[in-house]
């Protein structure tokens, strides 16, 4: 009898859950971790949506798209959050995403059009940042201010492999965008500065913190983590004249069975409730600066005219060319 009532209770509980609509969002691993934005975002959205938000960590940025392509139309996911500007062209080409139909005004620099406008019809931004070389300001007083200065110095750097890592790809495109046909020369000049190339960001940043290199490719916002969470002022990002951008975006899957909730989530994503969580959990600039401004310790972003970006649609072709040059220059 006791078991029967437990079973009945369990059954009632599962049906109760089943009545609440569930919105499934695929995202990258660090987003859903206890230290990422996931838990706070889930709580905030569930307060208003009358639904359950199921955040699923599915690898990192690039693996996320591969995952959605694998699952195809059968995917449980309604929304994918965590692709970046280098992946959106491939994502749209897959035909798995549908247009969001929303208009937003954003605080993301726009090198291709009027400030504040967002022209991507399939994806909406939630945060962004600049790639930069991070260094220890107690050991390095005058950091290089350009790739040329870096190449001329005897400073040691760690970078990520563009074939396995999103920041690595960002650096590749940064050099290509800034130097064009001279990009191979820059890589050849940088070759003796590169201590090593790692599989992902974690390995590279770990090596830097261990003192294996003077600088590491990361984000201009990385020092904010050390300042805010560790009260450690010793990390800074080297200011190059211009920096390549990464814009992280989310989009709605064409095969979603919760289209209204998905729209609701994308709208929620651009509100203060979501945006104010981003800076101190994802350590990136929020796509729309929340009413309270940026937390202390966050340097104000550099001027928008210093932003570098390759139009998402052009990325796939340019990437292949730049990758071949990179491999040739560094394999000697």
């Amino acid at each position: 009898m006791k078991y029967l009532s437990i079973a009945a209770g369990l059954f009632a509980a599962t049906t109760a859950v089943a009545e609440t609509p569930v919105l499934t969002v695929y995202t990258y691993d660090s987003f859903v971790s206890d230290w990422g934005p996931g838990p706070a975002v889930k709580a905030a959205f569930e307060e208003t949506c009358g639904c359950e938000l199921n955040l699923v960590g599915a690898g990192d940025g690039a693996a996320l798209l591969a995952r959605v392509k694998l699952e195809g139309a059968r995917s449980d996911a309604d929304v994918v959050l965590g692709l970046d500007n280098n992946l959106t062209a491939a994502a749209v080409a897959s035909g798995l995403f549908q247009e969001h139909g929303q208009t937003v005004t954003v605080d993301v620099p726009n090198p291709f059009g009027e400030a504040g406008t967002w022209s991507d019809t399939h994806f909406l931004p939630y945060d962004w940042g600049y790639f930069a070389f991070v260094y220890d300001n107690t050991k390095l007083a005058t950091p290089p201010a350009s790739f040329d200065e870096l190449a001329a110095s005897d400073l040691k750097i760690v970078i990520q492999d563009p074939r396995s890592s999103t920041p690595g790809l960002g650096l590749l495109l940064w050099v290509k965008e800034q130097y064009g046909t001279d990009a191979p020369k820059i890589w050849e000049a940088l070759a003796d500065n590169i201590v090593t190339v790692t599989k992902g960001w974690s390995e590279a940043y770990g090596l830097f913190l261990e003192g294996e290199a003077d600088m590491v490719l990361s984000y201009t916002t990385s020092p904010a983590y050390h300042i805010v969470a560790e009260e450690d002022q010793s990390k800074s990002a080297a200011a190059f004249g211009s920096h390549y951008m990464q814009v992280e975006v989310a989009g709605k899957l064409a095969a979603t069975d919760q289209p209204e909730l998905a729209d609701q989530f994308l709208t929620f994503m651009t509100t203060d409730a979501f945006q104010s969580i981003i800076p101190t959990t994802n350590w990136m600039y929020p796509a729309i600066t929340p009413a309270g401004g940026l937390p202390e310790g966050f340097a104000a972003p550099i001027a928008p005219e210093q932003a570098r970006l390759i139009a998402p649609a052009d990325v796939p072709a340019i990437r292949d060319e730049a990758l071949a040059e990179w491999q040739a220059a560094l394999s000697q």
Binding site: S30, G36, A58, W201, S222
Partner: peptide
């Protein structure tokens, strides 16, 4: 990493997540 959701993380995966969050 291909199959995980937040509830079924293994220890090595959790370690990577900590690193990804600068911890």
């Amino acid at each position: 990493a291909l199959f995980a959701d937040p509830q079924t993380a293994t220890l090595p995966l959790q370690m990577y997540r900590l690193m990804g969050a600068y911890r």
